[in-house]
């Protein structure tokens, strides 16, 4: 009777067959038990090894050198390299307006770059994530293709665009917007163009991945409840992508603060930033310790600014979740 009932419900499963399956299954599970525990230990060990390797790497090749750097900037040595005592004298030459202006300029450059990357990158990421459709991956791929080519090639490509008889000037002349070619190269403008061009993907990628996971129904729910586009952006979209925006801002802001290749090649000799000064001092004769001191000083400034940016985001997210 029982066997018959079973057949009637599913129509296919027979009791005898079900029994057979249970027998087949029970044996391997028993033998597997021992293996599983050994495998588990191996797995956790392996994970530990894999996980700890980069940490050790970081300590040896980043934190220890950083400490050496800080120590060097504070140490006075004789000409033969012997330790004499602690000193702040390497910092003295830096306490003049020229260097402080350079640090200030670097802040300006990285902030403007970050800001431009954000206002260009967010709509771009939004477009790719929500309107990309089947082309989504292709568009993302196109964004990353420039990374495949050599960096110096990029810069030369931009030379052709920005030079006196280059693409941009010709275009503007043809459109009748200007009467004589403008001076683009070797200016803050060309530096900014190149900076934004290079750092844009670092902003787009984290925001894109956050928007891709974003449920578009939330936007519709917001419109449905009476919010217009601006209110929806402000109350739903930005709060929910805030952490990705922060990640993007850090990814652009930190490296662009120390960037020295782009200003060096695109900025001419009037555009001097932290990176250029450091390379000049460290490569120069006898100026090594001052260069190191400058590095320490600018790193300190960067850390302080990061602290404030982080605080700002904490304040933002608190404000967003605190009140609707």
């Amino acid at each position: 009777m029982l066997a018959k009932r079973k057949r009637s419900i599913t129509g296919e499963i027979k009791l005898s067959e079900a029994n057979l399956n249970i027998d087949k299954l029970s044996n391997p599970t028993l033998t597997k038990k021992k293996k599983t525990s050994l495998w588990k230990i191996f797995k956790s060990e392996a994970l530990f090894t894999i996980g700890s390797t980069p940490i050790i790497w970081q300590i040896i090749f980043f934190y220890i050198p950083l400490l050496i750097l800080v120590a060097t900037s504070l140490v006075k040595t004789s000409t033969s390299g012997q330790f004499i005592g602690l000193t702040l004298e390497h910092f003295y030459p830096l306490l003049n307006t020229t260097y402080l202006t350079i640090i200030f300029n670097s802040f300006g450059l990285s902030l403007v770059t970050t800001f431009l990357c954000l206002i260009i990158g967010f709509p771009l990421a939004y477009f790719i994530a929500f309107n990309g459709g089947r082309l989504k991956n292709v568009l993302l791929f196109l964004l990353l293709i420039p990374f495949w080519t050599n960096f110096i090639l990029h810069i030369y490509a931009w030379f052709f665009v920005l030079e006196k008889h280059g693409f941009l000037n010709n275009l503007l002349l043809d459109l009748g917007l200007i009467s004589s070619p403008l001076h683009f190269l070797n200016s803050t403008f060309s530096v900014l163009v190149m900076m934004v061009y290079f750092y844009l993907p670092f902003m787009v990628l984290p925001i894109f991945s956050s928007l891709e996971r974003f449920n578009p129904l939330l936007l519709e729910a917001s419109y449905d409840l009476g919010a217009n586009h601006r209110q929806t952006l402000q109350k739903i979209l930005l709060p929910l992508t805030l952490s990705a925006i922060r990640a993007g801002i850090f990814l652009v802001y930190i490296p662009s603060f120390g960037e020295f290749v782009i200003p060096e090649l695109m900025g001419g000799d009037r555009n001097f930033f932290v990176g250029n000064v450091i390379s000049l001092f460290i490569l120069g004769e006898k100026t090594g310790p001052v260069g190191i001191a400058f590095t320490v000083l600018s790193t300190l400034c960067l850390l302080i600014s990061l602290f404030f940016i982080n605080r700002f985001f904490q304040y933002l997210s608190k404000k967003i979740t605190g009140e609707a």
Binding site: N215, L217, L218, E220, A221, I236, P239, L240, T321
Partner: peptide, 9 residues
């Protein structure tokens, strides 16, 4: 909405 679409934040 289906699955409610509550604002998670």
């Amino acid at each position: 909405f289906q699955n409610y679409a509550l604002f998670p934040h």
